[in-house]
Simulated scan of single mutants.
Amino acid sequence: MTVLVIGGSGFLGTELIRQAATAGHTTAATYATRPGTTSHAAWHPLDLRDPARVEAVMAEIGADIIVNASSGNAD
């Protein structure tokens, strides 16, 4: 099973990545400015305001589960 954590570089996202990896799931995560420090995920830059990029990341990862842990702070 592949898990995608949107906003994986934040506090909640980091914990979700850790739990998914511990459970044995392939894990991918996104970040807005810089990837998190965990090596348990494949990192992808993502701006949720860019629909084409969102579609590209979703297609590339093909996740079975998607968790949005982003803070939602848009400029």
Rank of each mutant, 00 (worst) to 15 (best):
Ala59Gln: 07
Phe11Trp: 05
Gly8Leu: 01
Gly7Tyr: 03
Leu12Gly: 12
Met1Cys: 05
Leu4Pro: 07
Gln19Pro: 00
Ile61Asn: 14
Arg18Glu: 11
His40Asp: 15
Met58Tyr: 15
Ile65Asp: 11
Gly10Asp: 04
Gly72Glu: 05
Asp50Trp: 12
Tyr31Thr: 00
Pro51Gln: 03
Arg49Phe: 10
Ile6Asp: 00
Ala21Arg: 03
Leu12Val: 12
Ser70Met: 08
Gly62Thr: 08
Leu48Tyr: 13
Thr33Cys: 12
Leu46Asn: 06
Val67Glu: 09
Ala74Tyr: 15
Asn73Asp: 12
Thr33Trp: 15
Gly36Ile: 06
Ala32Tyr: 13
Ala41Pro: 15
Thr2Gly: 00
Phe11His: 05
Asn73Pro: 01
Asp75Gln: 09
Arg49His: 15
Val57Met: 09
Asp50Gln: 11
Val5Gly: 14
Asp50Val: 04
Trp43Leu: 07
Asp50Pro: 07
Tyr31Ile: 01
Thr14Pro: 04
Ala59Gly: 04
Ala23Phe: 11
Ala29Leu: 07
Ala20Gln: 05
Pro35Glu: 05
Ile61Tyr: 15
Leu12Arg: 06
Gly8Ala: 06
Ser70Phe: 09
Thr22Pro: 01
Leu16Asp: 03
Gly72Tyr: 05
Ala41Arg: 13
Thr37Gln: 13
Asp50Phe: 12
Leu4His: 10
Asp64Ser: 12
Leu12Pro: 01
Arg53Val: 06
Ala63Arg: 10
Val5Asp: 13
Thr27Asp: 01
Leu16Asn: 10
Ala41Met: 12
Glu15Ala: 06
Trp43Gln: 13
Asp64Phe: 09
Ser9Glu: 04
Gln19Ala: 10
Ile17Trp: 06
Arg53Asp: 14
Val5Cys: 11
Val54Leu: 15
